[in-house]
């Protein structure tokens, strides 16, 4: 269970919410309303007030890197630093490449030849390969065509439900959030409405 207790960020009203295992919280709001900042605070990448708990253990009780492996942020724009795809994945992990439309195992592909959409799908596969308890998805289908978008939605929901993961899913697309989210939160420019 992921709990936010009086979580406070600059220019944002304090937040109080809970995400249960197997559930998706949809997060929407105009650009600049603080969606990405909220995800960064949840991953402990930015300082913040209040408390965030995973299964009743506060964030500060985890070493920072342990916390981030449990509560994993998948940013809208993925980053790749080594030459080949495989170097970015944890060792000895079975990855279901086909679920996200890779007919062949792309492990030995070089990063240069990946398209934007391939990078986005691979970054989701990469994050899930680390088996986090919570995934923070920042616009996970922003660069994808209709077919890939449906594939990603199905695969993510199946992974979240079957492994009792928790997710916060940021999207500009309200219809997508209605499809995937169990509860929704909309961040306003200054205040918050649940």
């Amino acid at each position: 269970m992921l709990q936010l207790i009086q979580l406070s960020l600059p220019r944002l009203a304090p937040l109080e919410l809970t995400v249960a295992p197997g559930q998706v919280l949809g997060l929407s709001g105009p650009s600049g309303s603080g969606k990405t900042r909220l995800l960064r605070a949840l991953a402990d990448l930015d300082p913040h007030g209040g408390e965030i708990c995973l299964d009743n253990t506060p964030q500060t009780a985890f070493p920072a890197h342990d916390w981030r492996r449990q509560v994993m942020l998948v940013p809208a724009e993925s980053q790749w630093w080594s030459d080949s795809v495989a170097e970015h994945f944890p060792e000895r992990r079975v990855v279901d490449w086909q679920a996200l439309g890779f007919d062949r195992d792309p492990s030995d592909w070089t990063i240069d030849r990946l398209s934007t959409g391939e990078k986005q799908r691979l970054s989701l596969l990469r994050a899930m390969a680390y088996q986090p308890r919570v995934v923070l998805l920042d616009e996970p289908t922003a660069n994808l065509d209709e077919r890939s978008r449906a594939m990603v939605e199905t695969w993510l929901l199946a992974a979240i439900r079957s492994h009792h993961k928790m997710a916060i899913w940021v999207s500009h697309d309200d219809r997508q959030l209605r499809r995937v989210a169990d509860q929704c939160l909309s961040l306003g420019p200054a205040s918050v409405s649940a």
């Binding site: 991953a43 990448l45 342990d66 981030r68 492996r69 998948v74 980053q79 630093w81 994050a127």
Partner: peptide
């Protein structure tokens, strides 16, 4: 951006 992306994947600083 790369350094933060690696932190997000749970790498130590």
């Amino acid at each position: 951006a790369v350094i933060e992306a690696r932190l997000m994947l749970g790498q130590r600083a």
